[in-house]
Design a protein around this nucleic acid. Structure first.
Lengths: 124, 124
DNA sequence: CAATCACATTCAATTCCATGAATATGATTA
DNA sequence: TAATCATATTCATGGAATTGAATGTGATTG
């Protein structure tokens, strides 16, 4: 059991429940921020933690929601776990809402904090 | 006070809160269904009631949520109150989510029930 | 295999949302 | 102005989402 959102509603439920479920996942600024950070490809959790400035466990909780919804996937590489968006169409949803609310920037003004992962610290 | 969603978050809040608020409104199959019914222009409440098959008070509750969020507006004409979508860009959000979830129809398979409003019963 | 690292999960408390039931409102007609 | 119509609101309750705190897991290194 524990189907992801998209698969779950494809069969038995009402048509608009699938949309509603997706929106439910997006009803959270941190989750939106995570998805925005993943626009340029995969990132490890320490990245997200550093850029968003929240506790690790909290980030992990939100990642779990996105993961169980089937919106992101994880991949382990040594010590780090890298997350990536499964279906880029999710950004069409985010962008449409962004246009509707008429905001200025795409909302990715990060902290540019230091990250200890091998992609950050070692060479460059 | 009681600002609508779009106005409320434009000033003081975080960027992605505005998007999150919009998504929160859409986290409800009945509200999505109402918006879909309003795709072809305004409808009176009795229409929505007849087409969706819910109690009047329930429809009215959901209309209130949409209205207070600034997504729809009402107009009185005699006995009936007609609702319309304020900004059609909301459909870009719905359609994007619809595409993401890969549904077949636009989810507007209504009941085609009878409605007592003057637009329905009197002449045609 | 013990220590350590990056990350995940569980638990509990609070707050928020959904919804049925009952009732209110405000325009309209007689 | 009283009755009636379409629609709105209030209230109460059960259930779900949020989040802090603590702890667990599994790969990696020595």
């Amino acid at each position: 059991m524990e189907l992801n959102v998209i698969d779950a509603v494809k069969s038995s439920a009402q048509p608009m429940d699938a949309q509603a479920q997706v929106f439910k996942i997006l009803t959270h600024p941190v989750r939106i921020a995570i998805l925005n950070l993943l626009r340029d490809g995969e990132h490890c959790v320490c990245h997200l933690e550093a850029f968003l400035g929240f506790r690790q466990a909290y980030i992990s909780q939100q990642l779990a929601v996105l993961r169980e919804a089937g919106l992101i996937q994880d991949r382990r590489d040594g010590w780090n776990i890298y997350y990536r968006v499964v279906n880029p169409q999710i950004y069409a949803v985010l962008d449409a809402a962004h246009q509707l609310t008429g905001e200025s920037a795409a909302g990715t003004a990060q902290l540019e904090a230091a990250c200890p992962c091998p992609h950050c610290s070692p060479k460059e």
